[in-house]
């Protein structure tokens, strides 16, 4: 198959195509920084302690799983891993239920105050949650939701402005006649939402879940504030504990980083286009 012609190369003078070549070469070199850092972390995770000291930057002489055993079992990283998984899972379920039905309720029904609510739910994009974190901390303490994975996942679900925007955009172009027809056939509102709307919303749900998975899995600040009990710490906090005392944990930190980074790299490898498209879909005009 013939490669699609790039119209941007049409008027390229010799000099300009050389410049483009140089730019692309420089950026390819630049990309090796990421490959090197990620690759070296993965490799170092499998080195023995002495191998790591003598041969920090090279290929392991022998692949061992000792570091993973120490990190997961002795330092109880498996706990952090489970905490991260539970936190992300709970948050995604709550966030998707709440934000999809919210966007649906506002997009599909006519009522007074509709346009106010549309703006109201966008305030969260302008003012980050950090600004209200002290009163939020007080509220969470009063509700006995501090130091609780469920409590923090409620906060993530409440931080719904972005997901709300993505769902709203989708429902905006949803054929309303379909809903009317179902209503005439006597379907209940909940039935319509669950049986007719949600199934076709699946790709959007997937995108929202993907973006929020990355965001929550990687989040550092909220767990730092709301999960202070050592049994509740997430992977990012675990890694921070290692890096805060870098030299003492030198041999363990690579295994910890590998455990936290691998799921994200795999997801990004398969879905990078959907992640970038999803992120921009919430921020560029229709």
């Amino acid at each position: 198959m013939k490669r699609k012609r790039n119209i941007h190369e049409l008027n390229d003078s010799r000099a300009s195509s050389i410049t483009k070549g140089i730019i692309s070469g420089v950026l390819i070199l630049y990309s090796f920084i990421a490959i090197y850092l990620i690759g070296l972390s993965f490799l170092n995770a499998f080195k023995t302690r002495s191998d790591l000291i003598n041969n920090t930057m090279g290929w392991p002489h022998k692949f061992v799983f000792e570091n993973f055993r120490v990190v997961l079992i002795e330092d109880n990283f498996i706990r952090n891993l489970v905490n991260s998984l539970v936190l992300v899972g709970l948050s995604l379920v709550l966030l998707i239920i709440v934000s999809s039905s919210l966007a649906y309720g506002i997009a599909m029904f006519e009522f007074r105050g509709k346009s106010f609510l549309q703006t109201y739910f966008l305030v969260g994009l302008m003012f980050p949650i950090q600004l209200g974190i002290l009163p939020l901390f007080v509220i969470m303490t009063r509700l006995h939701l501090n130091n609780s994975l469920l409590g923090l996942s409620l906060i993530y679900a409440a931080n719904l402005s972005f997901s709300f925007t993505v769902f709203s955009k989708f429902f905006h172009s949803f054929p309303k006649a379909l809903l009317e027809a179902a209503r005439i056939d006597g379907a209940s509102e909940l039935d319509i939402f669950m049986r007719i709307v949600l199934p076709v919303t699946r790709p959007v749900i997937f995108t929202v879940a993907l973006l929020n998975f990355v965001m929550i899995w990687n989040d550092f600040y909220m767990p730092l504030v709301f999960l202070t009990k050592s049994t509740l710490k997430t992977l990012t906090l675990g890694i921070y504990t290692y890096t805060a005392d870098f030299l003492a944990n030198w041999n363990k930190v690579f295994a910890g980083v590998t455990i936290a980074l691998l799921p994200i790299i795999v997801i990004y490898f398969f879905f990078s286009d959907r992640i970038t498209a999803g992120l921009t879909s919430g921020s560029v005009k229709e």
Binding site: V98, S101, L102, I106, L117, I129, L136, I139, L160
Partner: peptide
């Protein structure tokens, strides 16, 4: 449809 999101968002944001 709106109430759960409204309560969560208002209370925590």
């Amino acid at each position: 449809f709106i109430t759960p999101g409204f309560i969560l968002y208002t209370l925590f944001m």
